[in-house]
């Protein structure tokens, strides 16, 4: 079943055309990789899905409902179901790790303090950050911040998680942890879009591979099709984009 579908998305910033007819869908329970050179509009596309950016034309459909024309207030409940994990983690720097992760719980649930504490501890265990509960974001390394950011975006059990380069700039150990987290989330039946330059990482998580080029989806296929593609662009992409290029 299609849980999310993008139809003919167009988006420009002033004269600069970013998306010129993006089409794809996401099946329930699958995680797809969204690849593409820097600046092709991968982040803008994820942001458009949850209305952080306004698209100029096209449709975003979530569970058979159009969501691209909502006003800002109507997006709020939706954003608990489709969650965005930021490229730079975007933690609240005046709040502790615990407060950052608990923020969505305080806002959107009626849980009491004990229950919230329990939930936060559970998710901290999943992202391997239990020891950092009372630290401030400025005390954390980039990799730890990303894991906290992931924890914060999963705490409400969203149906879809949009990962914006979750492994960018991470060392192999942190990368492995993030991949495990994503697979854990996938194993629970949730769906995801994994924006990355890190092809090996994507291959460990994703069922399908999409390539964004010149404002359109240039390639859309399974891991098998991606591996065996003869298309020159797909080939260069696969061979030139390794994680060492993957610096934001």
């Amino acid at each position: 079943m299609k849980i999310l579908e993008l139809k003919n998305i167009h988006k420009s910033f002033g004269e600069k055309k970013i998306h010129q007819g993006v089409n794809f869908y996401l099946e329930q329970g699958e995680t797809i990789a969204l690849l593409g050179h820097s600046g092709t509009g991968k982040s803008v596309l994820l942001r458009s899905i949850i209305g952080l950016e306004q698209i100029d034309q096209g449709e975003v459909i979530f569970r058979q409902q159009r969501i691209d024309q909502l006003d800002e207030e109507s997006y709020y409940p939706l954003r608990t179901k489709i969650s965005y994990s930021f490229q730079n983690a975007a933690l609240f720097d005046s709040l502790s790790v615990f407060e950052n992760i608990a923020y969505p719980l305080f806002e959107h649930t009626k849980l009491n303090e004990t229950q919230i504490n329990q939930k936060v501890e559970d998710v901290l265990k999943i992202v391997n950050m239990s020891q950092a509960k009372f630290l401030m974001p400025s005390d954390l390394s980039g990799g730890m911040q990303k894991r906290v950011g992931l924890a914060r975006s999963m705490i409400l059990n969203p149906e879809i998680l949009l990962y914006d380069e979750p492994t960018a700039g991470l060392d192999p150990v942190n990368t492995d942890m993030v991949i495990d987290i994503m697979n854990e989330f996938k194993a629970r039946g949730f769906s995801g879009i994994f924006v990355t330059h890190d092809i090996p990482a994507a291959k460990r998580v994703c069922d399908r591979f999409l390539l964004l080029r010149d404002g359109k989806i240039y390639f859309n296929g399974t891991l098998e099709e991606f591996n065996h593609s003869n298309d020159p662009f797909v080939l260069t992409f696969g061979s030139t984009h390794r994680s060492r290029h993957d610096v934001p």
């Binding site: 952080l52 965005y84 975007a90 959107h108």
Partner: peptide, 14 residues
């Protein structure tokens, strides 16, 4: 500039 305003929005709050 550090994306925290967007984070507030992305977490479903105003």
């Amino acid at each position: 500039v550090t994306g925290q305003i967007d984070a507030i929005r992305a977490l479903g709050t105003s």
